Amino acid sequence: MQRIEHRACFGGWQDVYRHRSQVLGCDMTLGVYLPPQAQDGARLPVLYWLSGLTCTEQNFITKAGAQRYAAEHGIILVAPDTSPRGDDVADAEGYDLGKGAGFYLNATQAPWAPHYRMYDYVVGELPALVEARFPASDARAISGHSMGGHGALVIALRNPGRYRSVSAFSPIVAPSQVPWGEKAFAAYLGQDRDAWLQYDATALVAGAGERLPLLVDQGDADEFLEPQLRPQLLRDACAAAGHPLQLRMQPGYDHSYYFIASFIGEHIAHHARALA
């Protein structure tokens, strides 16, 4: 791993690293915040953050203000990029497919399949790297925003016992039923809609192997609320399955990082209780 940024932050260090991903077949960057407790030699829990469409690792580490709360609770923050990158990585016109729009799945269709394996990267390769390279324990939590909220919910639901807690801001809860997801899934996974359901949180809750409580914050002034996010679908699915869900509709908030920054402290406290 090559460290390419190193900045003091709330008594700890906000770093950015570049590394070669064997899963994705390209170089990847990730933000790693080491709180001041990391200097004591203890193995600390890790919160993985998955960002949304068009983002890199920079959006979260520069806009969310999460480091303050991670320092208070002694939690390492890991924020990977949102897709594979590089000249030989397939791309598409528009912001919602290709680079910056990996959707945290394993693509099966050409030309995406060789590199677009963000699910395997986040679930396997990334934590193995983090736990080997940093003073990180195997106590993990996962969270994210929009496309990354979708990723966090799906990954937690599909991997019982791997994460102590999960939360999401403005997640795409039912990608198989909204335009963003339909476009991406058709390209990455093909036309078999049954194959899409393995990456749809509303479909996964019924068969979830554990009842890990879901914490979801959603702004009621979000411009994508009805066409793309539709949190009521997750509420209905959880009610039908008896799956614990705390869905908080936040009045006046939109889809931006102003929303995330307003509630990230509460989310990190939620994870800290589970990670203790």
Rank of each mutant, 00 (worst) to 15 (best):
Q250F: 01
A128R: 13
A174H: 14
G31A: 13
I260P: 04
R162T: 15
R193T: 14
Y257S: 08
Y33T: 04
A272H: 03
A168K: 10
F103N: 04
L275T: 01
L204R: 02
H255I: 12
V122W: 10
Q177I: 01
G94I: 03
L44M: 09
A240T: 05
L234I: 03
D138E: 15
V178Q: 14
M118F: 14
S176N: 09
L234V: 04
E5N: 05
D254W: 08
D138F: 02
A195D: 13
L50N: 02
V216C: 11
C9W: 08
R248I: 13
E266V: 06
L212V: 05
G74R: 07
R68M: 13
I142M: 03
Y121L: 10
A128T: 11
Q39D: 11
L44E: 07
A261H: 14
G181Y: 11
A208G: 09
Q14G: 04
V16T: 14
H19R: 12
R235L: 04
G11W: 12
P36R: 08
V173N: 07
A195I: 02
H115N: 15
L53Y: 07
D200F: 10
F263G: 06
P244I: 08
D222P: 01
E125C: 09
L129D: 00
H270F: 14
A38F: 07
L30A: 09
A132F: 00
D254M: 09
A276F: 00
E72G: 00
F60V: 12
Q22V: 07
A101L: 08
Q39Y: 01
Q232L: 04
V205W: 06
E131V: 02
A70H: 02
A113P: 00
M147I: 13
A168T: 11
R20Q: 15
E182L: 15
I61Y: 14
G86P: 09
A274F: 05
A239R: 13
C9D: 12
H270P: 02
G151A: 12
G98P: 10
G41R: 05
V166M: 04
E210D: 12
A240P: 04
L24R: 05
E210P: 03
A141G: 12
D192W: 05
P179D: 12
Q58F: 15
K183P: 01
R20I: 13
S262M: 01
T29M: 12
Q58Y: 15
T29S: 11
A239L: 10
V89A: 04
L204V: 02
N159R: 06
L204M: 04
G265C: 08
P175M: 08
Y104S: 04
L105T: 11
G102W: 00
A186D: 07
P84R: 11
R248W: 03
L245T: 00
Y199E: 06
Y104F: 15
P35K: 10
A64G: 06
E125L: 09
P80R: 11
H267V: 14
F259I: 10
E223M: 09
